[in-house]
Amino acid sequence: MTFLVTGATGTVGRLVVEELLAAGQQVRALTRTPAKAALPEGVEVVAGDLARLDSLDGVFDGVEAAHLINFAGDDYSPLPDGAGLVKLVAEAGVRRITVLGGRAEGELEQALDAAGIEWTLLQPGEFMSNTLRWWAQTIKKEGVIREPFADRLSSLVHERDIAAVAATVLVEGGHHGETLPLTGPEAITLKEKVAILAAAIGRDVRFVELTVDEARAKWLADGMGEETVEFLVDALGNTPEIGYTVLPTVKEITGREARGFAQWAAENADAFRE
């Protein structure tokens, strides 16, 4: 029995591979750059791109279940032919699908519904791993975080927990047609997040709260486009209830408690040190 993981070198995909291996499963990993994959021994690495159906010849052959992402490339653009992708999946006889939602539901999800394949949508909240992208270099260089909305709450989710849920659903099934919102075990403010990270790395990290206009200017100066900046202002300044509501989904699916931000910070402390 083979399990296919797409986006296999990404933040979550790499961990889905590890979780399936730990469960004793045979894993095929799809990546656009196999030579750079650096995945664990025993994984069958294949080249392909979900945005290019002509690159997927034979990729789904013999696959029992597959983990898909519903976006293409690093810019999170929608898959250009979700229906065509589902047709390939169905023709290969894949029985079960998990979809990691990086964007709003669209053609892929509609096609899965129409195809009658058992599938489950994973809908994580804010990734703890985003902290690396946004803060690591700034903390190493300056020891200061400058952001707006200091008291914004977020129920951050550990990327390992997302992967564990995906692997469990792929192996065990039983969640057809469900959307599984995934959160961490607590909702913390931005100021609390900085304090937890500072404790983990053993260094003072100062927090400076920006006004919205100051944040806009900073993000534009950092090279972000205006559309992205306005998205951030809205998303961070008007976080929907789901973004700070703690849910038990991780424990319900995997049987163990979700990992907190303090654990994530301890695991990744070296990335924030000089």
Rank of each mutant, 00 (worst) to 15 (best):
E214N: 03
H158N: 15
D161F: 13
D161K: 11
P124H: 05
V89E: 00
V12E: 14
K140P: 00
V86M: 01
L122D: 00
T228K: 11
T228R: 10
F261C: 09
A38T: 14
G174K: 02
L39K: 01
L180Q: 04
G184T: 09
I196C: 03
L21T: 03
M128G: 07
R256V: 06
R273W: 11
E274N: 12
G173H: 02
V16E: 10
G10W: 02
V157T: 01
T179I: 04
T31W: 05
I242T: 10
A164S: 12
R52P: 13
P78D: 02
L112N: 06
A38I: 05
R160L: 11
L50F: 13
V157L: 07
W219V: 00
R256A: 12
R273T: 13
V208R: 08
D49A: 06
T2C: 00
D54M: 00
T239N: 03
E192T: 09
A90I: 03
L190F: 15
D49I: 01
L108S: 05
E230N: 13
F127K: 09
L50A: 08
R273C: 09
A23E: 07
E19N: 11
M224L: 11
A215D: 06
K140G: 14
D75F: 04
L247P: 06
A187D: 10
L153K: 13
G243M: 07
